[in-house]
Each structure stands twice: as C-alpha cells, then as structure tokens.
Amino acid sequence: MLIASLKPRTMGGTTNTGLLTYALARAGHLVTCYDADESLQLAAWARDAGDFPCEVHVADTPAFAEAVYPEMDHDRINVVDAGHAENHPDIVDSILEVVDLVLLTLSPTNPDYERLTKPERGTPLAKVIKRSAALRASGQPPATYVLLNRCQAGASSPRKYADLLLNGGKDGTDHKWSVLSTQIPRREGIASAVGFPCNKPERKKPYDALVTELTGLGHLPQARR
C-alpha cells in the first residue's frame, strides 16, 4: 500500500512522515519511504539519523505514478513525503493518482486553515484531491484524513479547527474533512526530530497512537511481527 503525507504551506509535514515511519516499523510493518519534496529533507534525515528504519528513495518527479509507483514492493507499507502542495502541484497530482491513503498535516491556526481552505494563490487541496478521481482506477478520490499538528496542551484551538474542518467551515458550505482523533503535540522533542534518532519518548507515543488509530480505521494491514 501507499500512504502520502501532504500539506499546504505549513510546518511539520516531513517530521510527521519520518516519525510515522519509525512508528510503523515499531509496530512490525515492513516500510519503504519515498521523498517527493524537492528539499529532500526526508532523505537527508535517513542519511544522518543513524537509526532510520528503512531506505528512502528520491522521487521528486511529476512522473511518480508512471515511473516510481510500478517499481514499489506493494507488500510493504510505502510512505511518500510530498512538498507543499501549492508549490509542487504536478508531483502531488501524480501521487494522488495512485495513493491509497492521504494524511494531511495541518496546524490549528487561522493562517494554516486559510491556506488549506481558501489559499490566496493555488488550488484548494480539497479540489486537488477531488479531481484526482478522474485519473484513478477506482474512479474515487483517495481516503484522506487531517492530522492536527503542533497542538498546544490545554489550548482550545485544536477543537475549534477540528470542528471547522469536520463541519465545512463556519457556514457549512466548505469541504467537510475527516479529522483524526490523534493529535501531534507541540513539543521541542518532536519539532527538533528531523535529522536525529527517534530515541525520545515524546517522539514515539503520539505516532504509536496514530498507527493504532489508522489500524482501527482499517487503513493499515496487520503488522508482521
């Protein structure tokens, strides 16, 4: 299967991709990663961390569906880290053509919410995902979930923005998103994770919970222990 980590112009997407990969491996899954962000930050992390759990292939190409996807081992969980969607629309379109599950990183702030729903420039991600249906074998867009990121403990903003996303905005006319109950907390140990080993408890617990939730939703296969 193939999981795509997407984001509008927000922070923490590659961090979530990497720490999710560690969590999938801890759960017993065989994992391979693909770096489709031109910054190649995930590939650099795998090179520098020393304990990254899998190989990371460079895959920042608008021919992802034609050139990368057919060569994957589809018995594994393949995870692709995409760049900001508004900056890499051709790559994102190609990924969406073949992906099984989209995880969309979003911080619970008004600027990030506006970039997702009504960007000043670029196509709203809901429309990008919806239009991919025409290119997919199923004729349907991929299953997509918002993962709220950098959530401050005790703050009201995660609940506020989860409600806006779930209910189609203030007036109910915007796209209604599925939002994961797992939230990634705002912690220095997570924010500083890129390039370093996953050897701190705060880098593990939220992502283990994410794997558990995705498994419960039926989007992950049974792990191979």
Rank of each mutant, 00 (worst) to 15 (best):
G139D: 00
I129E: 03
Y207G: 05
L210M: 12
H219I: 12
T32F: 00
K204P: 11
A44S: 15
E86A: 14
I129L: 01
L20N: 03
Q140K: 14
A44N: 12
R131F: 01
Q140E: 11
H219E: 12
M11K: 15
D90I: 07
P221H: 05
R224W: 05
G189T: 06
V146I: 02
V98M: 08
I184L: 08
Y207E: 01
A137P: 00
R26C: 01
D81V: 03
S178I: 01
D51Q: 05
A209W: 05
P108Q: 14
D75H: 09
D90A: 15
L214I: 05
E114D: 15
M11N: 14
D81C: 02
T109W: 10
I3E: 07
R187T: 03
G12L: 09
P62Y: 01
R225D: 04
A49P: 13
G12I: 03
T173W: 02
A155G: 11
P158V: 03
L6M: 08
L101S: 10
T123W: 01
T17E: 03
A46T: 09
D35W: 04
D100S: 10
V92L: 11
I77L: 11
A85K: 07
T15P: 00
R131M: 10
M72E: 00
G139S: 02
H88E: 14
L96Y: 12
D112E: 14
A23L: 00
T14L: 11
G18V: 09
V194T: 13
T105E: 07
K170H: 09
H175W: 13
V58W: 03
K7P: 06
V179F: 05
D163N: 13
A43W: 11
G12C: 09
E66W: 06
A137T: 06
D81G: 06
S132D: 01
D100I: 01
Q41L: 11
A27M: 00
K7W: 05
V146L: 06
V56Q: 08
T32S: 07
D81H: 08
N110W: 06
V128Y: 02
V98R: 13
E38D: 10
D35S: 08
M1W: 04
A133E: 11
L116I: 08
P8Y: 04
G168M: 06
S107V: 06
N87E: 13
I129V: 10
T182C: 10
D73C: 05
I91G: 05
A155R: 14
P62V: 01
I129C: 04
D93F: 04
G12E: 12
L40Q: 15
